[in-house]
Every structure is written in C-alpha cells, then in structure tokens.
Simulated assay, not measured.
Amino acid sequence: MLKADERLDYLLAEDLRIIQSPSVFSFSLDAVLLANFSYVPFQRGKIVDLCSGNGIIPLLLSVRTKAEITGVEIQERLVDMAERSIHYNQLNHKIKMVLGDVKEIKGLLDHSKYDVVTCNPPYFTTTPGNKKNMNEHYAIARHELLCTLEDVVKAASFVLKQGGKASFVHRPGRLMDLLSLMRKYRLEPKRLRFVYPKEGKEAHTILVEGIKDGKPDLKVLSPLYVYNEKNEYTKEVHEILYGKEQ
C-alpha cells in the first residue's frame, strides 16, 4: 500500500489514517483549521474541496457529514495518495477524487450543483523575487505556478449553488485580494477569523467564508491562538487536533 518514503499518519481527533510523504506532500495545520472552520451539511448535500492535495480536508470533513465529498487535485501522485487513504479508511462510498485543473473546472464538475466549497490554495505569487521550493510537488502546492487565487475563487463560484458557502484559508497579506475576488465572483464574505501563533504576535493565517449571492454583512470572529505562553497548543487547537477529552 505504501510507496517509497510514504508513511501512514494518524488523524487522532477523527480516528482516521492518511498517507503522507516528506518528499511529496504533508498537510499543514492550515488544512486542519480550514476543515474545522468550514460549515458542512450534516445529512445530505455535495461538497467540493479544491486544490485537495493528499485528500486531508475531505478526510477531516467526512466524520462531520453524510454528504458526498469530491476532491479536485492537479497532481497525479497526490490523487493516488488520496485515493489509497480513502480506500484504507473505507470511505469510497463518501469521498471521490478528481484529477484535474481548477482552471478547467467547467469540464470537471457541474455548474451550480454544490452546497459547500473548501480550498487551501497556493499562497505565494510567482514574482521574480520569490524563492520557490525546489521540490516540484511542494512548489506547485505552495506557489501560484499552475493556478492563481483568482482561478480558485472563480472555480468555487462556478460550482456553488446560490446560497452555497465557500471557505478559504490564506495569509493575511492577501486578505484584500481574497475579499475583492470573492465579491467579484459573487461570494459575499460573511465570516472572517484571524489565526495568531500566540498572543502578542501578528496574525499569520486568515480563515474566510463567503455565501454565493449573500447580502453584505461580514462578521469578524474571535481570534484563534495556536500556542499559549508555555508554547503548548491552546485548548481550542488541542481539541481540534486531538479531540475533546471524554
């Protein structure tokens, strides 16, 4: 089942396993926070995760919903890893992966048929001064080499039903870009949360949710701190990662 330097990691709060590789792809805390932040219908519906990587967000969402979940990923190796994780966790009935480019979303998924979209897009633009990761898999995942922020927002709007919800995770420096693009493509920003490494530090992550054709009314949620003064996970982050104590 495992290839080359792959490993089988635990998703403790969800009691699932996921295939990862230090040389190909390993998920970050951002993906876990996005999955936790995102609304999902409990009983029925259709969910899409764009830029899905090794399927981490579909796996995390699968324990919170009975809806069908589709992950879209452009890298064949990552789709293969995701599909093997899905099979290992016996979730083939709930999650499927689609190999494809979000810029070609019209040929991959139906228009206005989905209730929820999540996306952890590449964060970094590809301006000449940027120092890209030399590993091709990580470079594609982290830098706007194959898709831009506008590409993913446009794709999210295409697949969402009117009233559907789209959630994104990104860097604070791109906040205005993200909000502007969401409005451009009819995804009215409704919830915003800043994530800080710890109290007294600058925010390093943003979580944003929009509603397709929603009315303007942005709520800024309470801040999320990752570490406390002892450099241990805060109670909220610990529960997200490991589950609530019984």
Rank of each mutant, 00 (worst) to 15 (best):
residue 110 D to C: 13
residue 135 N to Y: 01
residue 119 C to E: 04
residue 95 I to T: 07
residue 93 H to F: 13
residue 93 H to R: 13
residue 138 Y to C: 01
residue 71 G to E: 04
residue 90 Q to S: 14
residue 111 H to A: 12
residue 149 L to M: 14
residue 57 I to V: 14
residue 60 L to W: 01
residue 135 N to V: 07
residue 103 K to P: 01
residue 56 I to C: 12
residue 71 G to Q: 02
residue 99 L to R: 14
residue 118 T to F: 05
residue 86 I to W: 00
residue 63 V to E: 13
residue 119 C to W: 02
residue 90 Q to M: 12
residue 97 M to Q: 08
residue 137 H to W: 11
residue 112 S to L: 10
residue 143 H to V: 01
residue 95 I to S: 04
residue 63 V to A: 14
residue 121 P to V: 03
residue 80 D to H: 11
residue 126 T to E: 00
residue 142 R to I: 07
residue 79 V to D: 00
residue 138 Y to N: 08
residue 98 V to H: 05
residue 101 D to I: 05
residue 113 K to W: 14
residue 61 L to H: 03
residue 86 I to G: 02
residue 150 E to K: 10
residue 137 H to N: 15
residue 134 M to V: 13
residue 110 D to T: 11
residue 60 L to K: 02
residue 73 E to G: 11
residue 103 K to R: 15
residue 122 P to V: 08
residue 133 N to I: 11
residue 115 D to W: 09
residue 71 G to M: 04
residue 112 S to Q: 15
residue 134 M to C: 10
residue 65 T to C: 06
residue 79 V to M: 05
residue 154 K to N: 12
residue 123 Y to S: 03
residue 72 V to H: 06
residue 87 H to P: 04
residue 97 M to F: 07
residue 127 T to K: 12
residue 55 G to H: 01
residue 117 V to K: 00
residue 84 R to T: 04
residue 90 Q to K: 15
residue 108 L to Y: 06
residue 104 E to K: 12
residue 150 E to P: 04
residue 136 E to A: 14
residue 151 D to S: 09
residue 85 S to K: 06
residue 96 K to D: 07
residue 117 V to E: 02
residue 130 N to K: 12
residue 142 R to K: 15
residue 80 D to N: 15
residue 79 V to Y: 00
residue 96 K to S: 13
residue 93 H to V: 09
residue 65 T to E: 04
residue 76 E to C: 10
residue 100 G to H: 06
residue 143 H to I: 00
residue 148 T to I: 10
residue 65 T to M: 07
residue 148 T to W: 03
residue 89 N to V: 07
residue 118 T to D: 06
residue 58 P to F: 03
residue 117 V to G: 03
residue 103 K to M: 08
residue 95 I to F: 06
residue 91 L to K: 12
residue 129 G to N: 13
residue 63 V to T: 15
residue 74 I to G: 05
residue 113 K to E: 15
residue 61 L to D: 00
residue 104 E to T: 11
residue 76 E to M: 11
residue 153 V to H: 02
residue 82 A to D: 06
residue 132 K to S: 06
residue 133 N to T: 10
residue 106 K to I: 09
residue 87 H to R: 15
residue 79 V to K: 00
residue 112 S to W: 07
residue 149 L to I: 11
residue 73 E to F: 04
